[in-house]
Nucleic acid binder design. Structure first.
Length: 294
DNA sequence: AAGTATCCAGACATCTGTTA
DNA sequence: TAACAGATGTCTGGATACTT
């Protein structure tokens, strides 16, 4: 039922994209070998396919840069942000910390990154590479300061590195690809949480046992598939206000091919990867697992 | 300016107790 | 005995401080 099942090699499954993005992030060198390395990291894909996929990505980037694909005009309410670049340090006076005017201003509440922003971040990462947070901030994630981008990147890479370990909760950092997969599937890859075997969370046997006493987790029942948190994904918290705050979920008018965007149908004729993603489908509202409470 | 480490708040998961 | 509700612990993510 999902793209994942298409295994002729031309279709890109979510897993492929994840692998692709990760590989891309890891191999930033410009050598020709780069593609081979990346291809090696993406099972089932040839160097050509990898390149093609990358070209699509670049196209997307260009479109974004050229303004064809409008960036959501985020602007977090509390973010003076006019800064897009400016107030890199809001707490500002790092030194002053002593004076921590915190008294009442405390630490700013973190403004969660939306999926849109994260995707833009990934695009920027692809284009400028690791380290050039300023450019990424300036040209991609315009709603975030370089500092924020760097912070986000820090967490992202940490997450990436621990990808193999059993993670427990899903996080936005599980999105390693700008596109997204078909929603109809309880997909797991992204959340990584146990797509295969229900390694399921952590190993906290509890859930697996399902039996445990938590009669509250219907989702964790023997259903073979869905990860513990039922719906994968990211952005759960976002269901509400944040979305609007940040703006539009990625329903941007995007080119049809938009591998990393909102395309909905592959371009016929070309080996269009793209399949899996479909941001349009990305309903930020994450139907949370009907876990009992909350 | 970028990278790294740490702090802190919020969200989520699980466990325990109570009631039907 | 099962279901529900509440409490507590753990994890994630963003911001900030410090270092290179």
């Amino acid at each position: 039922m999902t793209v994942e099942e298409v295994s002729d090699g031309s279709a890109w499954s979510r897993e492929d994209d994840i692998a692709f993005e990760r590989a891309l992030a890891n191999h930033t060198d410009e050598s020709e070998e780069k593609w081979e390395k990346i291809a090696a990291d993406v099972p089932g894909k040839s160097v050509d396919q990898i390149k093609e996929h990358y070209e699509l990505l670049v196209e997307d980037v260009d479109r974004i840069e050229s303004g064809c694909v409008p960036l959501p005009s985020y602007r977090s309410p509390l973010d003076d942000a006019g800064d897009d670049g400016g107030s890199s340090k809001r707490g500002g006076n790092s030194h002053d910390q002593g004076s921590k005017a915190k008294a009442d201003q405390e630490r700013r509440k973190g403004i969660a990154w939306s999926e849109d922003e994260h995707r833009l971040f990934l695009l920027g990462l692809d284009k400028y590479g690791k380290g050039d947070w300023r450019s990424i901030s300036r040209n991609f994630v315009v709603t975030r300061t370089p500092t924020q981008v760097a912070s986000h990147a820090q967490k992202y890479f940490i997450r990436l590195n621990s990808m193999n370990k059993d993670r427990r909760r899903s996080s936005i950092h599980d999105i390693t690809s700008v596109g997204d997969a078909d929603v109809s599937t309880p997909q797991g890859p992204i959340t990584g949480q146990n797509q295969n075997n229900n390694t399921n969370n952590t190993g906290s046997a509890a859930v697996v046992g399902g039996g445990n006493k938590s009669a509250k987790q219907p989702a964790s029942q023997p259903t073979p598939g869905p990860p513990m948190y039922g719906t994968p994904t990211i952005g759960q918290p976002v269901s509400g206000p944040l979305v609007s705050a940040v703006g539009t979920p990625v329903n941007l008018p995007a080119p049809p091919h938009m591998a990393y965007g909102v395309h909905s149908a592959p371009v016929p004729g070309s080996v269009v990867p793209g399949a899996p993603m479909n941001m349009a489908q990305m309903p930020y509202t994450m139907p949370r697992t009907p876990t009992a409470h909350r």
